[in-house]
Amino acid sequence: MAMNKRSKRKLLVVMVLLGISLATVLALTAFEENLMYFYSPTEVNDGTAPTGRAIRVGGLVVEGTVERDSDSLLVKFDLTDGAENISIEYSGILPDLFREGQGIVAMGKLNDKKVFVADEVLAKHDENYMPPEVADALEAAEKK
C-alpha cells in the first residue's frame, strides 16, 4: 500500500512514542526496587530489605513509644506500617514535624539486636491541608 509522506511521518511519531513508552515501562519495572525511596517495617522484618548496608525505612511513629534521653539527643521510638513494627534509635536533631503518629523516613542500618540505628530522620507530611479547628473537629468526631 502506498503511503503519502504525511501518513509516514504520523506513523513514525506513533512508533517512536510506542517504542519509548515500552522501553520506559520495562526499565521502570526492572528498577522497581531502586525507585522505592524507602522500605516498610514489614519488608525489614521479612527480610525483603537488604541488611548490611544503609537503607531507608518509612512508616508511622507509634503513639506512646517515643522516649527521649534526658541528657543527650538520643531518641528511641517504634515505627509501624500497620502490620509490623520496628524499633529505631536516633541521635540528632529531629525535624519540626516529627511527633507521635507522624509519617517519617529514617536512613540507617539494622544492628544485631534488630534495632534500626538511624543517622538521618526525615518527616513525611500527608496530602491533607486544613485549618487547626477543622483538624480538631475531625479528631473529636473520630473519638465518638
Partner: peptide
C-alpha cells in the same frame, strides 16, 4: 502512587475529592 516517595500524594489532581480545605 507507583513508588514509595518522601513527597506526599496528590491533594487536588486526583479523581477523589480534593484533600484540602475550601478556603485554601
Amino acid at each position: 502512587q507507583w513508588w514509595n516517595t518522601l513527597h506526599q500524594g496528590a491533594t487536588v489532581s486526583k479523581l477523589d475529592k480534593p484533600s484540602m480545605h475550601v478556603d485554601m
